[in-house]
Amino acid sequence: MRANSVIIEAENIKKIYLRGTEKIAAINDLSVTVNRGDFIAFVGPSGSGKTTLLNLLGCLDNPSAGKLAVNGRTVHESGRGLSESQLTRIRREIFGYIFQKFYLIPTLTVLENVLVPFTFFKKEGAEKDVPRLLKKLGLENRMNHLPGELSGGEMQRVAIARALVNHPGVLLADEPTGNLDSERSLEIGQLLRQLNEEDGLTILLVTHNTELASMARVTIRLRDGRIAKQGTP
């Protein structure tokens, strides 16, 4: 995996929502380039478009206008995009997602939850790597527990393991510590930093938590669907 090669390129993308008859530009002519190995935190006030942007970059949603390319492949250009199943194939090749909530299946053990993606899709060598992954996330002694027996931080680590089980190039995290106290948040932050530094994982993080944002290499501040400020923390 070459560092500093472009993995996501967005040019003048727009996302327009209709609220009644009113058009809201949640993302407005925004351009951003993500390189392999980047760790970017998107910050900004509520409603500034962070989640919308992350969804667009992660191919969970289609932009209304502009050009988006992922891994050299054009996903969207001037109003025309790929089909849902084509998007799914890109998503499972390139992206891992974690959210504020963990969405673990409560009746499956930690290990089973982590292995769920394999029932749909399995990258070469991914299965062999699971023990290492669990160890790295500090879950090796929790494998056979049910989610209900874990702390919030541990649950989020299970969700991270599940997101990473197919070796995605990019991890997208929307408020991953929104349900955690500050100590656990920091733990997750350090873990993300470690994954970025040691494994070269590209991470796009959305957070309100400044301490967590400071773990990223780059911070991008959004306001009204545009980039207001970009810098290193």
Partner: peptide, 12 residues
């Protein structure tokens, strides 16, 4: 949760 399954790569 089904949304998450699909985000994780589950096809329709």
């Amino acid at each position: 949760e089904i949304g998450i399954l699909k985000a994780m790569g589950a096809l329709a």
